[in-house]
Design a protein around this nucleic acid. Structure first.
Lengths: 217, 217
DNA sequence: GTCTATACTGAGATAGAC
DNA sequence: GTCTATCTCAGTATAGAC
């Protein structure tokens, strides 16, 4: 009988291939987080993984495709983190927890620098079905939480759902975190808490002392 | 007698040279704002100004020096905006107004994309005396306003001066603005006001309904 | 000082041996 | 499939004519 009768068992080579692919994705993730898309070269990735540059192209057909694969992984991890949130949490509590998770992940070096204004990368992502599907699914899930939190009266009524969504998304690439990390005066946990608090409550004091700030025009 | 006896009158050629230099700086500013440092090429700048690429190097010795000159201009414009604030405004009011000015400037396409993680550019800026002097002067001025606003009870006491400073600085490159601009559902003025409000007051509702959000750990 | 033309480098991608 | 070697192109910077 041929070996074809053995069904799902993967060969050693196949396993090796997948392990290597994961290593490539992990290395790319790190480099994308630390340097961003433009400053990350395929040579860097190959060196970090410890393979030849040419081999990268057996796994991913281009730098853009590789970056997209990393972004897909990030969106999937985020969805998992979202699904793992305690069900008894309020919508606002979930939003805050999700933000905490993202910021902690970023501090651990796990979140690619998104604001790459590279038009080619942008187009490549927009054309990537896997990426767009996951992005829309995540946005819909978070959007639902935002709508619920607004119904609960936990989010400001004068800000649109889309504004809140963008604001929360943008925190994942806020350079404030890099500055704070660089000064070293706060622990990672403190950084995360202050960022979350600043996002939801602002930097201004509330209460009687802050009512007449003269800033309204 | 030689023409050296004629003192401060600039020749036509000198004026032309300065006019051209201003055009170079303006073009670089635009490109830096739209694409960022890495994606802006010297070819782009030359084409935008309408001169030969080689001529750029008669004005600025390198791409880094050119970017630094643009950043110096930005810091100087910011200082001027700060000096022009109404004296009767509270410290918090001034901070808010300065933030408004910066965001409006950014929407008008006038603020270079700072978060360039290019190590060479970073080092170049850190070594640039003109840039560092102005950056420190501005930080000191804004820092003074933050300290005053805290004394007034207009800023949260549980956030450090440096955290507030970074948070305000970071708004000038917040991608939320790009998203909002792209959707087109808000006018520029509305975008600015919402950003300022989100920065100082947060996205969360205040008052009794928001007190128990279940997000504290 | 400005132009055209070019040297040099880094980086994305491919070819061909094994 | 992985390697080494190479192609190609974009981009910074410089050289030389005018």
């Amino acid at each position: 009988m041929s070996t074809a009768t053995v069904p799902a068992r993967k060969s050693f080579r196949e396993t090796q291939f997948e392990v290597r692919e994961e290593a490539i994705l992990a290395a790319t993730n790190r480099l994308l987080a630390s340097r961003g898309y433009e400053l990350m070269s395929m040579d860097d990735i190959a060196a970090e993984v410890g393979i030849a540059k040419g081999s990268l192209y057996r796994h991913f057909e281009s730098k853009e495709a590789l970056a997209a694969a990393v972004m897909v992984q990030l969106l999937e991890r985020t969805q998992e983190a979202l699904a793992a949130l305690p069900a008894d949490l309020s919508a606002r509590g979930k939003l805050a927890q999700l933000l905490r998770w993202t910021l902690a992940e970023r501090l651990a070096g796990g979140v690619p620098h998104l604001p790459s204004t590279s038009p080619t990368l942008r187009d490549s992502l927009l054309a990537n079905r896997a990426y767009m599907d996951r992005l829309m699914a995540l946005s819909e899930a978070v959007g639902g939480m935002i709508r619920q939190a607004r119904r609960d009266g936990h989010l400001r009524a004068d800000m649109s759902e889309e504004f809140v969504l963008f604001t929360i998304y943008a925190r994942s690439c806020d350079p404030t975190m890099d500055f704070l990390k660089a000064t070293g005066s706060l622990s990672d946990e403190q950084i995360v808490e202050q960022m979350v608090s600043a996002c939801f409550d602002g930097i201004g004091a509330t209460g009687p002392a802050a009512t007449s700030d003269g800033a309204k025009r």
